[in-house]
């Protein structure tokens, strides 16, 4: 079970909040980029033949002698897509279980808020993206949970491929929650694309050993996804430079996400990571 009853109870009291106007397919509770039928006044425009007479503002017509009709805001549902990186690099330590629980938390939060939610995996050169069904009610949660639980961290990562998938013509445009370690080529372009599609949050999951590697001696390091190797003689200076580089990488990811209109949350895969992520999302304004 990815979410226990106590956590679900806490999530039930929270709600997901969109930070941008949406272009949804179905009506909902989030402000749309379109004008529509809600009670919120938006603007006036000249009457054109065929407009609904009921929208003509007769007071203005009498006062100004110009026939204007009232325009109202439209409200759409928020199609939330949770993209889970299930590449081999996520299989170190507690990274993938943490990523599964994070995805479950966001998905449940969306369902509990009455949004349409879909779970998607990051494709790889040797593996297509798995796309779960759209779900819209909490009653669909067990199905999503089972889908998530079946995922295994294997293979490579094609983050740009995932971005292309989300930006494909006809795809739902809504916020995306990307849960990944971003340890793959093209992560920066992927963030740019996803940010342009619908914004969202980049949840970067890294293990404690990736931030403070417990390595020593002369080693040949092999990449879990690509199989490439590097020879490194560990020493204080090398480890210090690694730490600097790792911190720089996280800072770059945050900067890139913000530039693309997304938020960035760093989660260290250790006990308490879910609470840490939840607090960060509340802080970023995605949850209230």
């Amino acid at each position: 079970m990815l979410l226990d009853a106590e956590l679900r109870s806490r999530l039930d009291r929270l709600a997901l909040r969109g930070k941008r106007r949406l272009r949804g397919v179905w009506g909902g509770s989030h402000r749309s980029v379109r004008l529509g039928e809600s009670l919120d006044f938006a603007d006036y425009r000249q009457y054109n033949q065929g407009d609904d007479f009921r929208r003509i503002d007769y007071n203005l017509w009498a006062r100004l002698g110009v026939v204007l009709i009232r325009l109202y805001e439209a409200e759409d549902e928020m199609p939330l897509q949770v993209v889970v990186d299930n590449s081999a690099s996520m299989g170190f330590g507690d990274k993938f279980p943490t990523a599964q629980r994070l995805a479950a938390m966001v998905a449940y939060l969306g369902l509990a808020s009455g949004e349409r939610v879909r779970l998607v995996t990051v494709p790889a050169p040797d593996r297509p993206s798995l796309q779960g069904p759209w779900a819209r009610h909490v009653s669909a949660w067990p199905r999503l949970e089972r889908w998530l639980e079946r995922l295994e961290p294997v293979g490579g990562t094609d983050l740009p491929g995932a971005a292309r998938l989300l930006a494909a013509p006809g795809a739902h445009r809504g916020p995306v929650v990307l849960i990944s370690d971003l340890l793959a080529p093209g992560w920066d372009n992927a963030i740019d694309v996803i940010g342009a599609v619908g914004g969202g949050v980049v949840v970067q999951v890294l293990g404690p050993d990736e931030l403070e590697p417990p390595l020593s001696g002369d080693l040949t390091l092999r990449d879990a996804e690509t199989g490439e190797e590097v020879r490194v003689s560990m020493g204080q200076a090398v480890l210090e430079r690694y730490r600097t580089r790792a911190a720089g990488f996280v800072a770059d990811a945050a900067r890139r996400a913000h530039r693309s209109g997304m938020d960035h949350v760093l989660v260290t895969a250790r006990p308490g990571a879910i609470d840490q992520a939840l607090r960060s999302m509340v802080g970023e304004g995605w949850v209230r």
Partner: peptide, 9 residues
């Protein structure tokens, strides 16, 4: 050298 698998190089 001894080999160690890491998430990414």
């Amino acid at each position: 050298r001894s080999g160690v698998e890491v998430s990414s190089i």
